[in-house]
Design a protein around this nucleic acid. Structure first.
Lengths: 154, 154
DNA sequence: CAAATTTCAGCTTAACTGACATCC
DNA sequence: CGGATGTCAGTTTAGCTGAAATTT
């Protein structure tokens, strides 16, 4: 990750106009991804793959199609992502006996271990991110994010 | 854009755990990008390119290096992006006479026109996104987003 | 010479579309 | 058969690294 670019980013542009909400959301997501990549790179995975593992941690046993619908991407993209995780032994894919079209994706013990190994650093990242806010403000912030997401149909 | 995936996304996963802030931010960004792509696709550009144009609208006359530092990406990536916009006649690149290393990027009249053409639809998207919030809550939300972004060095 | 900016060449990842097989 | 799910093949876009040219 280019630390130089990150740290000097906010100094380059100071203007009179207020950036749009849409733009600030994008910038924040970029910053989060960059830091998350730093954390999980040691485990040989990307921020995207790590996020997929956390989704499975909360909702184990989803099918590929369910994962795709949850992620604004095509089933093919999810299949690629999951195939990579399977190749690294972090998830398993099993046919659903009740509906043999479906492939049920679940975390393996190494997958769970990876999550616990990095849980602390990820929590610290979230704490750093919200260090300028009170706990109440964080709670309100989360609700607002959720409200926006729901309003856009996500 | 896959409207089916978008609209059914939130129904696929309902669990006991609360998703992390980092994850919700990512989901919201994906939703915004998807809708923004729908709006600007008619103009033959991507959400990313549109966002770059809005940055130039607010801060005209930035160099490639300044744009890169502002965007968490490498100068090479920005150069590609700007080259595409230039090919479509939406921006110009001119050597800075004071510092002949620098290429100053600025909007062309067609670039400005593209922004005004879509300004209403983009504002409507932002209004839809925040339709569940009061104006005060939107203001607080913006401040929180900014606080998080600054805390991560963006 | 050192640092900053841009450029050139090649590469990788993460998405996409289209076509298809399988299952309910 | 129709709809859902997953897979295979090919493509595109958006990022990256490394190396080099130019200017200050």
């Amino acid at each position: 990750v280019d630390v130089t670019a990150r740290s000097s980013g906010s100094t380059a542009v100071r203007g009179s106009h207020r950036p749009s909400l849409l733009y600030v959301i994008k910038q924040l997501e970029l910053a989060v991804r960059s830091h998350l990549d730093d954390i999980v790179a040691a485990a040989g995975i990307t921020a995207l793959q790590y996020t997929a593992l956390t989704v499975l941690d909360h909702h184990d046993g989803l099918s590929l199609a369910q994962l795709a619908r949850n992620s604004f991407v095509t089933p093919q993209s999810v299949a690629d992502l999951v195939a990579n995780l399977e190749r690294n032994g972090l998830v398993r894919r099993d046919r659903n006996p009740q509906n043999r079209r479906e492939l049920i994706v679940s975390l393996t013990p190494p997958g769970r271990k990876l999550l616990t190994t990095h849980a602390h650093a990820v929590a610290a990242l979230e704490a750093t991110m919200t260090s300028g806010l009170t706990p109440e403000q964080v709670s309100v912030f989360r609700n607002s994010l959720d409200s926006c997401r729901v309003a856009l149909g996500g």
